[in-house]
Design a protein around this nucleic acid. Structure first.
Length: 419
RNA sequence: GUGAGUGUAGCUCAGUCGGCAGAGCACCAGGUUGUGGCCCUGGGGGUCGUGGGUUCAAGUCCCAUCACUCACCCCA
């Protein structure tokens, strides 16, 4: 029979990769709990309109990267390409929105974007997300950044760069966009790459982020948003940076940092790694003060981040499951029943391990146990059955002794005693 | 959506000028009675991605197709 392929850009997670994912999730729950963020789980499928309105009709994500299809009654549904929109929708649906209190949530789970896969980019990918709603203090920005940074540290990651920028607000951003458009419009078109000749009119900020040498030269002399913030935005941004410095969190000001989702304003940031290929952003986020209202909720501010787990996994080395406590080796068919009972009792005592249901030679069993990297190997054959005993062998020292079958758990306890 | 590259054993890959399908690792067994790791010996494993074409002969050349990888773009 022919096989069925898995869907392009989708993948199965076997150990040890799956262990890395469990590790990232466990750490997220542990660290975020310290900041009083609570876990929120929202649906994977939402009405398409939610993303069109939040992420922005003109963005690449909405225009060409969404998994969108009609349901059986012809309503347009979309598999979430990011988490924030769903979180806000859920928040607006909840009592929290009308309470007037600050809400802190985190979410873990799969996201979907229809893109050509490459290193660090798959069609189903996983994000760790955190969002704070109802607070516009610069301390909120600093808390989110501090939590993100602390999380990445807890994973043991080094050599990461935090890049930060401010995009301004509805008071100062439109004026800057106009100024930038004028500046770019005065340039000779030929200095831009093909893409930027188009962008100069439609999305001028993007030109500043282009990697083509010609565009970079132009960008170097272009007006910068950080120099054109309104007094309120400038004050906010300066405070954020000052708090970060007091925390000892190093950042790089990147005036060209532009994010692909339309809802960001004021503080935006990315965390970059140079060790994972061309898709180098392992985390990103920012402030989205107008978004809750745009989605029909109260006019409360918000800020959040997303971490890409596939990209973090590229940086995680040697995350392994704890070794098993025992491997039960049966040397004769007549010992099988007894072995099964002993294993069952050990498990009920909290020990972890497996049993081979094959009767094999001692040598063969020990080779298995050795490969599986278990702490002990239990051997049960005819000799032991006659004496009501079981052999317990410590696989790291090679020390072995026979104990009463009723004492196996005590024996394991002794073997595991630290010297 | 665009471009480049790669498909041969479970894995990583050799395979010359078109001439019998290979290595390392992994797996299984043995190396004196029921004792692992190191070492030695032996063994099982293949639709050479798939379909067509050229040829006495195709893993190798040609065409098509599928899958995967990397990059552009964009983003986590």
């Amino acid at each position: 029979m022919s096989r069925v392929n898995k869907i392009k850009g989708f993948f199965d997670l076997f150990p040890p990769e799956s262990t890395s994912y469990t590790f990232m999730e466990d750490k997220a729950r542990e660290i975020f709990a310290r900041y009083a963020y609570l876990e929120l789980r929202t649906p994977i499928l939402e009405h398409t309109e939610l993303f069109a309105r939040s992420i922005g009709q003109e963005t690449d994500v909405v225009q060409k990267e969404m998994y969108t299809f009609p349901d059986r009654r012809n309503r347009s549904l979309t598999m979430r390409p990011e988490a924030t929109a769903g979180v806000i929708r859920a928040y607006i649906d909840s009592p929290a929105a009308s309470s007037g209190n600050v809400s802190r949530f985190f979410t873990l789970g799969p996201m979907f974007r229809y893109e050509r896969p490459q290193k660090g980019r798959t069609r189903q990918f996983h994000q760790v997300n955190a969002e704070m709603l109802g607070e516009d203090s610069p301390y909120a920005d600093a808390e989110i950044l501090s939590m993100l940074w602390g999380y990445l540290q807890s994973l043991g990651l080094k050599k990461l760069t935090l890049e930060i920028n401010s995009l301004g607000c509805p008071a100062c951003r439109p004026g800057f966009d106009a100024r930038l458009k004028t500046f770019l419009g005065d340039m000779d078109r030929d200095v831009f790459c093909e893409d930027c000749q188009r962008r100069a009119g439609s999305n001028p900020l993007r030109v500043l982020d282009c990697k083509a040498p010609g565009c970079r030269a132009v960008a170097a002399g272009a007006p910068r948003i950080v120099d054109n913030l309104c007094p309120e935005c400038k004050e906010h941004f300066d405070r954020v940076l000052a708090i970060l410095e007091s925390f000892g969190i190093f950042y790089e000001l990147n005036p060209f940092l532009v994010r692909g989702l339309d809802y960001y304003q004021r503080t935006t940031f990315e965390v970059i790694s140079n060790d994972i290929g061309s898709q180098s952003a392992v985390a990103g986020g920012g402030r989205y003060d107008g978004l809750v209202k745009d989605l029909g909720g109260p006019g409360v501010p918000g800020i959040g981040f997303a971490c890409g787990m596939e990209r973090l996994a590229l940086l995680l080395q040697g995350i392994q499951d704890r070794p098993m406590d025992f491997y039960m080796a049966v040397l004769h068919e007549e010992a099988m029943d007894k072995a099964m009972l002993m294993v069952s009792r050990l498990r009920s005592k909290g020990y972890r391990g497996e049993m081979s249901f094959q009767v094999r030679s001692v040598k063969s069993h020990l080779r298995q146990a050795n490969k599986k990297n278990v702490k002990t190997c239990l051997l049960l054959g005819l000799d032991e059955m006659y004496k009501n005993q079981v052999q317990v062998k410590d696989m790291s020292t090679g020390v072995q002794r026979a104990v009463s079958q009723d004492d196996a758990e005590q024996a394991l306890g002794l073997v595991f005693q630290p010297r």
